[in-house]
C-alpha cells in the first residue's frame, strides 16, 4: 500500500494532476491511498514552493508541473 498525496492550492494545474493520478491507478485502487491537500499552511509547512506537487510515501516526485497519466504510472511502477 502506497500513500499518494497531491498538494495544490486548487488551481487548474493541481486539479488536473489529481485527475491524472486517479486515472493512472485505475484498476489498482486497492494498492494506493490518494489524498489531496489544498490547505495553504500544510503546503507551506511541507516546504513546497511551486504547486502542484505529488508525493509518494512522503517523497516528492513531481513538483511544479502536471504529469501525464503515463508518467505517473511510470513513477509508480505500473506498466
Amino acid at each position: 500500500m502506497q500513500n499518494i498525496i497531491i498538494y495544490g492550492s486548487g488551481c487548474k494545474k493541481c486539479q488536473k494532476l489529481y485527475i491524472n493520478t486517479l486515472e493512472a491507478i485505475t484498476g489498482k485502487e486497492s494498492d494506493y491511498t490518494v489524498e489531496k491537500i489544498t490547505d495553504m499552511e500544510s503546503i507551506i509547512a511541507e516546504g513546497i514552493m511551486s504547486t502542484p506537487v505529488l508525493t509518494v510515501d512522503g517523497k516528492k516526485v513531481i513538483t511544479g508541473q502536471i504529469a501525464s497519466i503515463k508518467t505517473i504510472q511510470e513513477i509508480l511502477g505500473i506498466a
Binding site: 492550492s9 488551481c11 494545474k13 493541481c14 507551506i44 513546497i48 514552493m49 511551486s50 504547486t51 511544479g64
Partner: peptide, 17 residues
C-alpha cells in the same frame, strides 16, 4: 523562471523562510 500565479503564496513563504 516559470511559475504559475497560484503558487505565489508558497513561493513567497519559501523565499522568506
Amino acid at each position: 523562471t516559470p511559475f504559475c500565479s497560484c503558487s505565489s503564496i508558497p513561493l513567497f513563504m519559501g523565499f522568506t523562510q
